[in-house]
């Protein structure tokens, strides 16, 4: 897996990524996922990362990007048929 932009988050990121990949290939793709069991690990990773994003001023840039992305969401989250 790839590194985090904040090296202090690498360890928790790796644990989360491994959990996610297992869930994705073994449950999500097979249609047997009932819940997101990696959520607790994601919360830890998110907590670490959000500090770094704030400290570097990336959080405000992200907000703009999210606003710009609304059209993509509308197009690709649409239910099929």
């Amino acid at each position: 897996m790839s590194a985090s932009l904040a090296s202090e988050c690498n360890e928790v990121k790796e644990r989360y990524d491994n959990c996610f990949l297992k869930w994705y290939s073994e449950k999500f793709l097979r249609g047997t996922a009932t819940s997101d069991e990696c959520e607790p690990l994601f919360k830890q990773y998110e907590q670490c990362l959000s500090k770094a994003l704030k400290a570097r001023g990336i959080d405000s840039m992200l907000k703009e990007a999210r606003d710009d992305n609304r059209e993509n969401d509308a197009e690709h989250m649409r239910p099929k048929r």
Partner: peptide, 25 residues
């Protein structure tokens, strides 16, 4: 590509679509 971070991830209950936001450095 130095880093890839996941910033949000959710399965949409209505469509079953997994939506992920990532930040690539």
């Amino acid at each position: 590509v130095i880093a890839v971070d996941t910033i949000s991830r959710k399965v949409d209950p209505a469509t079953g679509i997994l939506r992920t936001e990532r930040l690539i450095t």
